[in-house]
């Protein structure tokens, strides 16, 4: 994959939150929410960021959208004019034209729609504030967007309270699509939905990607959902990416012990597959006080002396994955659902 195809490339992204104490609010330390994260997303590709709460996946996504100011790093975005822009260093005023090309789908379908605006106002807002078309063309576009997300046009004048969670999520998707973005950041877009509705939204996102050539940064904790949407998966642990690999490879042959444990912990909806789980000991490390060496070593059953002192860096494997583990080449880790 050459750089020319990448819609986004993130290099050494860091986001530290200062910890302040005392009357003078002196900075006494940092929460390293995102610590040296790099990845790329190609056109038409879905990259999933997975990990447990506090691993920095949401912070990463907010930095990319500049809803948060990154501490360090480069976020290179390829505009529709085929120009590379560093989102991280842009001034607020320069961000606006760029925002049209990067949109977001939110986790909570309830709080992401303003309850005081009608559906057409919500979907039409990006068009309105970017002064696209006149009233009639905007209305036409809103109607088309409703078609795209498979909601009846007649619902245009309704308020969000009239819709179910799944329908609201469709409205949120329509809003994100309004400006024809190249990249959509989806932050846990189905985790608040009922099982029977999740599938509808997952399929819709897959279809839209095929039709519109969208790229997704898919932030999720549910590995089952991730398997259904991603081309590649990046696993995060305490602010760092520990493994990036094509989906099939990552699930079938994980190279990082944390990925292995994560996969093993996912309950499989088949009582005949009650496997012996790897149950991790202890708790996720505190991002304000990460262990020396590999942050995962206190919970890792394969840890050796080296892991306690030396921070592993992402290195390529034979299968086309990147893994940050000192013992990646020697361990034979178990995956799930070998591809048939």
């Amino acid at each position: 994959m050459t750089a020319a195809h990448n819609v986004l490339s993130v290099e050494r992204l860091k986001k530290y939150f200062p910890i302040r104490r005392g009357l003078l609010r002196r900075i006494v330390g940092h929460v390293k929410a995102v610590d040296d994260v790099s990845f790329t997303i190609a056109r038409g590709e879905t990259l999933s960021l997975v990990g447990e709460s506090g691993c920095g996946k949401t912070t990463t996504s907010r930095c990319i959208l500049r809803a948060m100011q990154p501490t360090e790093g480069v976020i290179r975005f390829r505009t529709d004019a085929d120009r590379d822009v560093d989102v991280a260093s842009l001034a607020r005023s320069e961000l606006r034209p760029l925002r049209r090309q990067m949109q977001m789908i939110f986790q909570d379908p309830y709080s992401s729609l303003n309850p005081r605006m009608t559906i057409s106002d919500i979907i039409g807002e990006p068009l309105l504030v970017n002064r696209i078309g006149d009233l009639a063309t905007r209305r036409q576009r809103i109607a088309e967007l409703l078609d795209v997300v498979q909601l009846p046009r007649a619902y245009m004048n309704r308020f969000p309270h009239a819709f179910s969670g799944g329908q609201r999520q469709r409205i949120g998707i329509a809003r994100a699509l309004a400006l024809n973005p190249a990249l959509i950041v989806a932050d846990e877009p189905v985790s608040a939905l009922d099982v029977s509705v999740q599938a509808q939204i997952i399929n819709l996102m897959l279809e839209l990607q095929d039709r519109l050539g969208l790229s997704y940064l898919f932030v999720a904790h549910d590995l089952s959902v991730v398997k259904h949407v991603s081309h590649r998966v990046a696993v995060m642990y305490v602010g760092r990416i520990v493994e990036i690999a094509p989906t099939a490879t990552l699930f079938a042959a994980p190279k990082h012990p944390y990925t292995e444990a994560l996969l093993s912990a996912v309950p499989v909806p088949d009582p005949r597959q009650r496997a012996k789980r790897i149950v991790l000991e202890g708790e996720v490390a505190d991002p304000s006080n990460t262990p020396a060496g590999c942050a995962f070593h206190p919970r890792c059953r394969y840890a050796v002396e080296r892991c306690k002192v030396e921070v592993p860096v992402l290195a390529p494997t034979a299968e086309g994955a990147l893994v940050a583990c000192h013992r990646a080449s020697e361990l034979g880790l178990a995956g799930v659902g070998a591809v048939s």
């Binding site: 799944g166 099982v195 029977s196 999740q198 599938a199 089952s224 081309h231 099939a248 699930f251």
Partner: peptide
Amino acid sequence: QALLRSIPSVLAAPRSRLATIAGSI
């Protein structure tokens, strides 16, 4: 039957479509 078909699974093939249940609760 429909619920079981529509749930995402780590055992599924990557990027496979799910069967859906029409409508919502």
